[in-house]
Amino acid sequence: MGFKLLSKLLVYLTASIMAIASPLAFSVDSSGEYPTVSEIPVGEVRLYQIADGVWSHIATQSFDGAVYPSNGLIVRDGDELLLIDTAWGAKNTAALLAEIEKQIGLPVTRAVSTHFHDDRVGGVDVLRAAGVATYASPSTRRLAEVEGNEIPTHSLEGLSSSGDAVRFGPVELFYPGAAHSTDNLIVYVPSASVLYGGCAIYELSRTSAGNVADADLAEWPTSIERIQQHYPEAQFVIPGHGLPGGLDLLKHTTNVVKAHTNRSVVE
């Protein structure tokens, strides 16, 4: 069995187990497998329904001669939608809004960016022009300005110390501490036991640490421990890039980060 097929099978099995364990909360999309990078042309966006009122959005972007996937989250909030992270750029984010209108038909009224990198804030200006209120932590807003990236308009308070959590509509926002970046936030959907790890969490097929220019490698494993301790009931975990899975993604990420750190020390 090929690795790609095995990865998709694991996603399907995880979703099936969740649907059985929580039949009222989960209505997993039966329309197909989780979209992969090879299936999404740059400039297009796919939506994948995880649970009743919960979707991931998947886009792709060219970077350094390669094409990478990027995940975000959409959560229903009454007759409105909360968006977590842009679709990595203005063109993708405009396509995301169009796809949401086509498939869901509810307005996106608020959006949260989970850290300051372009795959999370690139497209904020498109959201703002569409009347979406954009939010991020003060740290993310400051770092985005320093980096020359787009800056969300509103500040999220109460997320300055490791372990801080605040309720934001249908989700809980959690600051686990520094990891992929010093400002990275985690998003949890309690009604569906869905954990969105953003770039602080890796997919299972990833074996290298990737972009760690703004990471705190020493603190990252401790931050992941905080996530595990705060959300032990999480059933569906979405990484910032690639295929979702279960809580095993947290341990896998820790292993990859520690291996990278150990290699760096040896070198």
Rank of each mutant, 00 (worst) to 15 (best):
F3A: 11
L5D: 14
L13F: 15
I20N: 13
I20K: 13
P23Y: 06
F26K: 15
V28P: 07
V28C: 03
V28T: 14
D29E: 11
S31T: 15
S31F: 01
S31W: 07
E33N: 04
E33W: 09
E33Q: 14
Y34G: 10
P35N: 14
S38L: 11
E39I: 11
I40Y: 03
G43E: 09
G43N: 14
V45K: 12
V45C: 07
V45E: 14
D52F: 02
V54G: 01
V54S: 10
A59T: 13
D64R: 08
D64Y: 13
Y68L: 07
N71L: 03
D79H: 13
E80F: 15
L82P: 02
L82G: 05
I84P: 01
G89W: 02
L96T: 13
L96C: 07
L97V: 02
E99F: 15
I100F: 02
K102I: 15
L106Q: 03
T109S: 14
A111P: 01
V112Y: 15
H115K: 00
F116N: 13
H117S: 00
H117T: 00
H117A: 00
D118F: 07
D119L: 01
G123F: 00
L127T: 02
G131Y: 15
G131V: 07
V132Y: 02
A133E: 04
T134V: 11
Y135S: 07
P138A: 11
R141S: 11
V146L: 09
V146G: 08
N149F: 14
E150F: 05
E150Y: 15
T153D: 06
S155H: 15
E157C: 11
S161K: 09
G163T: 07
D164Q: 09
V166N: 04
P170W: 06
E172M: 14
F174D: 00
Y175K: 06
H180A: 00
H180C: 00
S181Q: 00
S181F: 00
S193M: 04
Y196C: 02
G197C: 06
I201H: 02
L204V: 12
R206Y: 12
T207I: 15
N211Y: 03
A213Y: 04
A215T: 09
A218P: 09
I224A: 11
I227F: 03
A234K: 14
F236Q: 15
G240E: 01
H241D: 01
L243T: 13
L250H: 09
